[in-house]
Computed example of a mutant assay.
Amino acid sequence: MSNLRTLRFYATPEHGCSYLPDRQARTLFVDPRTSIDRNLYSQLSDLGFRRSGGHIYRPHCEGCQACISVRIPVDRFRPSKTQRRIENRNADLVVQSAPCRLTDEYYALYERYIRQRHADGDMYPPSEDQFSNFLTEGCADSCFYEFRNTDGHLLAIAVSDRLDQGLSALYTFYDPDEYRRSLGVYAVLWQIRQACRLGLSFLYLGYWVKSCRKMNYKTAYSPLEMLHNGEWKLMDKA
């Protein structure tokens, strides 16, 4: 069985940075042929690695450390007034876990979300192959959390990985017409509560980039820990 000492890694050539348009980026990947169980994936997550489909990676950019791994210590989390209002606003929703799979219902929601919210991004235009490669391949300890209203209508899906020490929030897509619900925020809040219910310590939110406006939402969850020089430390609000 593989362990951290025996893992092989591959670095990509430089390519345009998705977060900072004036920068070049390089990514470090775990050998995709490696068999990775939950324990090893959990260790990699604590070292700042992230999963996308069947690939586990982290930024590996020369002379740049703008991408910072962040996580929420869920037992210390205290929602803001705005976050409490969002939780109350969505108290009618029913959430249940489901296997990661491609269905007509899931893809219809995903397609609408990408077309209306991310038409200027790397994921446009959406496709079924993209959905499968990104959201259904990879970790066996992953699930779709379905958020449905009282009529059973699917409003959102949060893709989440189970780690030894927490949950890793991979991606959320939702009905763009339900903007009053703030479903993206609610999905994070719900996963914080779910980690607590499961007796886990953290919710991993991926990377935060200070100069990237799209990443600013992550600092709204407090306290937030950041990985700096191999150590997890509370983020300075200043």
Rank of each mutant, 00 (worst) to 15 (best):
E137R: 14
L167A: 03
Y113H: 15
E231I: 15
C61K: 03
R71M: 05
S211N: 15
M123Y: 07
Y57P: 05
E137I: 08
S97M: 12
R181W: 02
H55W: 15
T172E: 07
Y19D: 09
Y186V: 03
Y19F: 09
T103D: 02
N149V: 04
V70I: 13
E178T: 04
Y207D: 10
S45V: 14
L163I: 03
L203E: 06
Q194C: 07
L102T: 09
D122W: 12
F29V: 08
L170C: 11
S18K: 09
L183V: 00
F49M: 08
A158F: 07
V95N: 08
K237H: 15
T12P: 00
D236M: 12
Y19L: 10
T219I: 13
R148M: 03
A25V: 06
A169D: 06
Q24P: 06
L170A: 10
R180C: 05
L224Q: 04
Y186A: 03
A187F: 01
M235F: 15
G121A: 12
E87Y: 03
S42K: 04
E111T: 00
R180I: 02
D37W: 01
R76S: 14
R51H: 03
S69P: 00
C139L: 05
Y221N: 01
D22E: 15
A158N: 14
F9K: 08
S160Q: 11
T12S: 13
M235E: 07
S182F: 01
Y204A: 01
E178Q: 13
Y106T: 05
R85V: 02
Q65N: 13
S201W: 03
C64E: 07
R117L: 04
Y217E: 06
P59Q: 08
L28H: 05
W208E: 11
D37Q: 02
T12K: 05
P176T: 07
Q194M: 12
Y179K: 13
Q24D: 12
A169E: 03
S211M: 11
D92P: 06
Q191F: 06
S97D: 14
W232D: 04
Y174F: 11
R71W: 03
A119C: 12
Q191R: 10
S160C: 12
T136I: 05
Y145D: 15
P13L: 09
Q116T: 09
T219L: 15
L40R: 01
V159C: 10
Y124K: 06
L109F: 01
Q43K: 14
R213I: 14
S160A: 14
G230V: 04
G184H: 00
W232N: 04
H15G: 14
N149R: 08
Y57Q: 06
R23G: 05
S69G: 02
T219K: 13
I68D: 06
A66P: 03
D31R: 04
L20G: 04
T6G: 00
C17F: 02
Y107P: 00
L205Y: 11
T219A: 11
A156R: 01
C139Q: 06
Y207F: 13
G54K: 13
V74C: 05
M215F: 02
D122R: 14
R181V: 01
Y221H: 02
P13E: 10
Q96T: 14
R162T: 13
D161W: 00
L234F: 15
L154D: 05
H60Y: 14
P176R: 05
R162Y: 13
Y10G: 09
S45C: 09
L40H: 00
T136K: 03
S80V: 04
C17G: 07
L200Q: 09
G121Y: 07
Q165P: 00
T6E: 11
V209L: 12
